Each structure stands twice: as structure tokens, then as C-alpha cells.
Simulated scan of single mutants.
Amino acid sequence: MPPSFRYERDHPEPCAGVDEAGRGPLAGPVVAAAVILDRRRVPRGIDDSKKLSEAAREGLYDRIVRSSTGWGVGIVDVEEIDRLNIYHATMLAMNRAVDALGVDPGMVLVDGNALPKWRHPATAIVSGDALSRSIAAASIIAKVTRDRMMLDYDGQYPGYGWRQNKGYGTAEHRAALIELGPTPLHRRSFAPVAQLVLAL
């Protein structure tokens, strides 16, 4: 079944959904998004971003942005990831995304099993992007935002296959990392990159 408003109805409006993209890659930022959907005009087809094609996500991104009551994005760059670790960097990205909404949500629904330290009332929902329509919308905004960034970075640092792998540690990416070495966008706190840096 597609995600619904079952969780949102249990909480005061405005209710924001929050999700992130990019915790696992070897390169690039981690991006979080927060979305408050207008329940009277929700775009059709919203689902967990992982279940949608790239073309479907791109189309939904524009429709979500146009129809939502509010949306915001939080980006944490590679230097911050390496300084904080990926967990705390993800929490920071979520904080920034909710701050970027420009309104105080009555409740924040967060995908996963952990919550940032913030002043907002919030609930963590495991597999929330498959259950809550607001979180699913946020997953689309976060994924498309980060994918677009990695496409730009692919032009700056060709050879790593970021257009296809978006910075994840595919065989192609790891082979290029060994051949070409790490870029400034590689996460040196991640083992495959750290081991290579030590070997240089």
C-alpha cells in the first residue's frame, strides 16, 4: 500500500515529514528535507523515493514544491560529515531542513529510529517513507536535491561515475578511487577512503 496520512491525523497541524538522502555514499553531502503537505491538494503518486524511477521523482519534486504548505532542505557538506561523523551530520541536516520551513510545525514525523535534539515535538517512524505521505514527500525532495548536486559534481570531477552511482561505493567508483585518488568531495572518515588516504 502507498503511504497515507494515518500518522499525520494523530498530530496537530502543521505536521512536517522529514527524511534524508546520502548517509551511505563515499562522496558528497548528506541532504535532508522537510515537507508540510497541503492535504487538500496532494500530488498523486507520492511514495518512498526508493520505489520511484528517477523520472517519476523529478516530476513529483516540482509538484510537491508547488503544492506544499511549506518545504525546506538542509545540507551538510563533506568537511562537516568528517568532523561530526555521519550520524550527527544527518541529525544536523534534519535540523537545518526544519529550520528552513519558515514555520513552526506542530509535529515533525522523522523517518528512522532516532530524532535530532531540537525544540520541536517529534516522532520517529521506522520505514516512515513507506508509511507516511509527508515523510515520503520529504524523501523525494531530499533524493532529487542530492542527485542534482552529484550530477553537477560529476562534471567537476569526471571519472568516478557519480552521474550513475551518486557517490555510492559501487565497483566502478571504488576502482576509480584507487586509480585517480580521492577528491575534496570524498568522505575521509569513511573506511574505503580513509584506507586509501593512508596508503598514499
Rank of each mutant, 00 (worst) to 15 (best):
G112Y: 02
R146D: 12
H186E: 10
A97K: 07
R188H: 03
R44C: 11
G155W: 00
D77H: 11
P105G: 08
L92K: 15
D99P: 00
I75D: 03
Q156W: 13
G169Y: 09
A55Y: 00
R119D: 15
I178S: 13
K51N: 08
R66T: 03
R133F: 00
M1F: 06
I125F: 12
R83N: 02
A55H: 09
V42P: 08
V197I: 15
T90R: 02
A34M: 09
P116C: 03
M1Q: 11
G181L: 06
V193Q: 10
G102F: 14
I81T: 02
G45D: 08
E80C: 01
A56M: 11
M94Y: 10
I75M: 11
R9C: 00
A171R: 15
A122I: 01
L198P: 00
T90E: 07
S132N: 06
G161T: 12
L60A: 06
P105Q: 06
Y160P: 09
R44N: 14
A171G: 02
P29H: 10
R133W: 00
P121A: 10
V73T: 02
P14F: 06
D82F: 04
I75H: 04
G112N: 06
T90P: 03
K50R: 09
R44L: 14
W162P: 00
R83H: 05
A176P: 05
A137W: 11
I81K: 01
Y168K: 07
V18W: 05
A33W: 09
D77L: 04
V42R: 04
A56F: 02
T69E: 14
A21S: 14
R174M: 15
R188A: 10
D10N: 07
K143G: 09
S49W: 12
R39S: 15
A136G: 10
Y61L: 09
W71N: 10
I64W: 03
R148K: 15
V144S: 04
P25L: 12
A175I: 01
M1W: 02
I178D: 14
A16R: 07
Y61D: 09
A124V: 05
V126L: 14
Q195T: 10
E58F: 00
R83V: 00
I135A: 13
A176W: 05
R41V: 01
L52C: 14
A194V: 04
L200K: 10
A136Y: 10
D104R: 15
V18R: 06
L52P: 12
G106C: 08
G22W: 08
Q156N: 04
V76F: 02
K50A: 07
Y168T: 11
L151F: 11
A130F: 02
P12T: 06
H173G: 02
A142L: 06
V144F: 03
V197W: 03
V76P: 07
G28F: 09
